[in-house]
Amino acid sequence: MSDSSHGSEGHIGHVLPLSILIKVFGCLVALTILTVITGKADMYGADLAVAMIIATCKASLVCLFFMHLKYDRPFHGMIFLFSVMCVGIFLAFVALDAESYQEHVKDFKANEIAEQQLGE
């Protein structure tokens, strides 16, 4: 029993070379600077998309290397992606719904203001 457990130690965890850690950290810092620069520049409406793409790149770097997903069991990565997918569905449905009923909210607000002005 103890023999087999001794032998299995090699499988537990994955030691990441320091050089990779440093490179990843460097990339993350660079991307942060990039996101600040693009955030201040006028991107002709693509600001949000650019910011989100950069953030996703950063997130992927953290996931793949710092969180070892690149070397880990694929199942753990799947769990994580699954959670993000669920959030995506949730977000899409609610945002779609809220956008479609905004009209009634705007009507109401406009009328409310009109009534206030009448009252004055």
Partner: peptide, 14 residues
């Protein structure tokens, strides 16, 4: 990770 998304979403809206 969460902060990585919060930062552009809250601070960098242009």
């Amino acid at each position: 990770l969460i902060w990585i998304f919060l930062f552009p979403l809250l601070y960098l809206i242009s």
